[in-house]
Amino acid sequence: MKFTTFILSTLLLSFAVPAYATTSTSIVHVNGLVCDFCARAIEKVFGQKTEVEAVKVDLDQKIITLDFKENQKLDNATITKLVTDAGYNVVSIDNGEGKK
């Protein structure tokens, strides 16, 4: 009986996990971000991507913060290509995930 309860509980828990929506954020360190014009370009390019919930540009830190929609994200290769195509250079990308 205890064994059956344990198995059932485990199964229930494993089904419960996908019910959480995951959101993720990428922090992109960029070279060449020196003016509002640059920031607007980045905002425009990422704003057109359906996966992106919000774009924040920090000119002081030279970073772009990309908040993605639930269960969506852009991979690092795509982010790098978009930044490069916009005319700037990616230094590094930090990816983070969270649960809602």
Partner: peptide
């Protein structure tokens, strides 16, 4: 045409 761009950490 953009012939060349230099993207530096604090300048362009």
């Amino acid at each position: 045409n953009l012939l060349k761009r230099w993207n530096n950490p604090d300048s362009q």
